[in-house]
């Protein structure tokens, strides 16, 4: 049984995490390269807690990151979506749509494709007035994704609360700008 929506893009399925995602989620969490800007490599126990935190966000707040499934292969290729742990008092710098994909799925435009669907959903269903993305300065590929989404640097050198505990720049944009752009697509 699912406890959140399933979204579909041309190449991806986005849905809340399920226990069967765990092996892929743990492999992702253990990859030092992909987690270099996400708080570092995690043990299987820490990865399970991270996945349960996402599932719990859905259960408690009605939103959370989606598991990203590649339609062609059926593989779990990452997690992406709305993230605001603890709500307004949780110490998170804002209403985020974030992304993190396994190495094999990077460089294909999947993050942009999935984030667009997640941002549309967040603005349509969560009442958010802006969306942010927390990105480490050295994370060039994610900065490129943020820019392709039309986001810009809102705040620099913001410390994320524990257990992440890393400094990031806050990219983002207002809902009105997002919607204006969607209704007049770039050439």
């Amino acid at each position: 049984m699912s406890f959140g929506p399933t979204l579909e893009t041309s190449r991806l399925i986005l849905r809340p995490p399920i226990q069967d995602d765990f092996a892929a989620f743990a492999a992702f969490g253990a990859d030092e390269e992909v987690t270099r800007h996400l708080g570092g490599a995690a043990s299987p126990h820490a990865s399970w807690r991270a996945m349960a935190t996402v599932a719990g966000s859905w259960a408690l707040m009605g939103f959370g990151m989606f598991s990203v499934i590649e339609k062609a292969s059926g593989d779990w290729i990452g997690r992406l979506g709305p993230w605001f742990p603890g709500g307004p008092e949780g110490g998170w710098p804002g209403t985020e749509v974030g992304w993190g994909l396994v190495r094999a799925a990077q460089g294909k435009g999947y993050a942009v494709e999935g984030a667009r669907a997640a941002i549309d959903w967040a603005f349509d269903h969560l009442g958010w007035s802006e969306v942010i993305h927390c990105i480490a300065k050295a994370n060039t590929p994610s900065i490129a994704v943020a820019r392709r989404l039309g986001s810009y640097v809102m705040h620099e050198d913001v410390m994320l609360p524990a257990p992440i505990g890393v400094a990031i720049d806050v990219y983002g944009q207002a809902r009105d700008d997002w919607r204006a752009r969607v209704s007049s697509p770039a050439p």
Binding site: F3, P16, T53, A55, A59, G86
Partner: peptide, 14 residues
């Protein structure tokens, strides 16, 4: 908050 989310997520996943 994270600890509480893990408790709620434990139900959702397991």
């Amino acid at each position: 908050w994270r600890a509480m989310a893990v408790f709620a997520g434990h139900w959702a996943l397991l």
